[in-house]
Design a binder for these strands. Sequence first.
DNA 1: TTGTTTGCAAACCTTTTGCACGTTA
DNA 2: TAACGTGCAAAAGGTTTGCAAACAA
Lengths: 150, 150
Amino acid sequence: MTTSDWGALARRALVGSGHRLGGAREAVVRLLSRQHCCLSAQEISDRLRSEGSSVGIASVYRTLDLLHGMGLVQRVDVGEGGHRYEPVVPGGEHHHHAVCQSCGKVTAFEDRRLEDAIDRLSKRLGHGVVGHDVLLRGTCTRCEGRSRAA
Amino acid sequence: MTTSDWGALARRALVGSGHRLGGAREAVVRLLSRQHCCLSAQEISDRLRSEGSSVGIASVYRTLDLLHGMGLVQRVDVGEGGHRYEPVVPGGEHHHHAVCQSCGKVTAFEDRRLEDAIDRLSKRLGHGVVGHDVLLRGTCTRCEGRSRAA
DNA sequence: TTGTTTGCAAACCTTTTGCACGTTA
DNA sequence: TAACGTGCAAAAGGTTTGCAAACAA
């Protein structure tokens, strides 16, 4: 699954559900499809502006909200005030995040065993579980090395 | 481990780290020690006010922040704007949360297999992992029954 | 007494909403 | 053309900060 597929998927989902593909939506989809890991709404807006597309922050939020409702965008909270957003393929593979408490760097990872544990857990609980988020907090290799040196 | 132990732990940690135990901190600690699952800062403030202690919301946040820094309070994001906070015993048993997308109800659960998977994963990753959060999203039994009936 | 804590109000930051204008199908 | 999408500015909601008065040790 390449990221460019996500763009096609998103455009199809938008149009297929009766939405129009205006400048703002197109720009946000194009940017996200080039992006593997999570960005804040402000970062998305800033990048688009620096590329010349002047997309209002409100439209960024509106587009993210729309895509989120279709399961094409995932909201990630790394606990620093504000959320981050990233493209996801519904039913496809997905990853989780580890955030460095020292520098704030976010790293994505996948883990089969973790997914299995959550699947079993979901069955055990009465709840019908449709999704899950996992966040690891710690120190990234770079910061760990730096603090050891100091 | 009973919850009243948490209160003692928190008070000791505050005083032991050179902080004073004023009215606001005492009130927040007392309320949290009676609480198993997560509350929002606003809920904490409201409950304290309805009990007669008029603690400013700023002091609630300041106390939560202090306790969070000591690992005695955990911040939980159930994705509805705003965080929730709950007491935790450092190194003690902990739980995670399942949130109902229909009614917003938050349920706590524990799962040994999940913890094991995260432990192994932590070792596999370069990161020094010091904590983790898991959130399940789905429909609680009550809402599931209701939608089936409709 | 002396530095710390507190409540209030104002500031801040992220996200949402109202609205007039521009655009899409 | 008629409905929808967009940018801007204002509003809203949660959290933080400045400050003078109250308080703990």
